[in-house]
């Protein structure tokens, strides 16, 4: 095993950080969703790496469940975004305060 485990974890942490920064910085709700996907992917990488280096299958199963939950989350999230768009609101996460009214 020439590549040590912590390099995978470092890459996973770097990807998660970039996703989180994008989540905080971007204002288009679709791009914010993509950044969430980036973070979930980074966590999946950590799961798969730990699963491989500890000779276990639990991490692979967790990553599979994360993929499933992410697919469900994207479906509902995009349905809400499309509804807001059809209501003629501005596509800016800072301007989305429908719940306040």
């Amino acid at each position: 095993m020439p590549v040590p485990a912590y390099t995978f974890l470092l890459l996973s942490g770097a990807l998660f950080t970039m996703g989180a920064i994008g989540f905080l910085v971007r204002r288009n709700p679709l791009v914010v969703f993509m950044c969430i996907e980036l973070m979930l992917n980074a966590v999946n990488l950590a799961f798969a790496a730990i699963s491989r280096y500890l000779n276990s299958l639990d991490g692979v199963v967790f990553a599979f469940l994360v993929i499933t939950v992410a697919a469900a989350e994207v479906v509902v999230g995009i349905a809400i975004i499309v509804q807001v768009y059809r209501a003629g609101r501005q596509m800016d996460v800072d301007g989305l305060d429908l719940m306040k009214e």
Binding site: E37, N41, A48, S51, R52, V60, A63, I67, A70, I78
Partner: peptide, 30 residues
């Protein structure tokens, strides 16, 4: 990377679910 980690099942799920279904949904909506 999943292939490098000997997780072929995750590789297939990643390509089909994420790169296939989820991203096609994103691109369609955009």
């Amino acid at each position: 990377l999943f292939l490098m980690l000997n997780a072929q099942f995750l590789f297939a799920a990643q390509v089909i679910v994420y790169a296939g279904a989820v991203m096609v949904l994103f691109v369609f909506i955009i």
